[in-house]
Amino acid sequence: MLADMIFGLLALSPQEGGGTLLDVNPGLIVWTVITFVLLLLILRKVAWKPILSALDQRETTIKESLEKAEQAKQDAIQILKQNEANLARAEEESQKIIEQSRQYAEKLKEQMLQASKTQAQKIVEDASAEIERKNEAAFDELKAQIAGIAVDAAERILKENINPELNKKLVNNYINEITKN
């Protein structure tokens, strides 16, 4: 009986109170066309246009945001590189400046040392020259005094050169005089 039933279905045999499964009701065609076309027109206006445009808009927004983010990333990398380069240059510069100033200080030190050395030398030389000069002057004065004394003594000897005794007395006196002086 099941086989009978299925066979009945497959053969699409006419049934009681109705046609077969392949019967086409013209009214249904009309209603389907009306329903579907109306649905299509209303949905196109009410749903598909706003939804699809929203989706498109979102797609472009996402794409643009991604592109912007990528651009920003590239910019940041660029800036970072620049900063690094600047930093390296600054480091180099400061190193150079330090080196230069060190050299300069070294030179200055050397110079000052040299200058003070020569100055000291000069002072020493000056001082020794002065001493020499003073010595000489003193010696000259002494020599002049001795010469004067000798001349004086000779004068006196010549004046009173009467006897040896007196000579002797004179010399003694003179010597005494000198020592007294």
Binding site: D4, M5, L9, Q15, E16, L21
Partner: peptide, 17 residues
């Protein structure tokens, strides 16, 4: 309501009415 061996009841539920 229909004969036991009939497949009409299936058609009744599937078909338009």
């Amino acid at each position: 309501s229909v004969k036991k061996t009939d497949s009409g009841w299936i058609m009744h539920h599937i078909m338009d009415s």
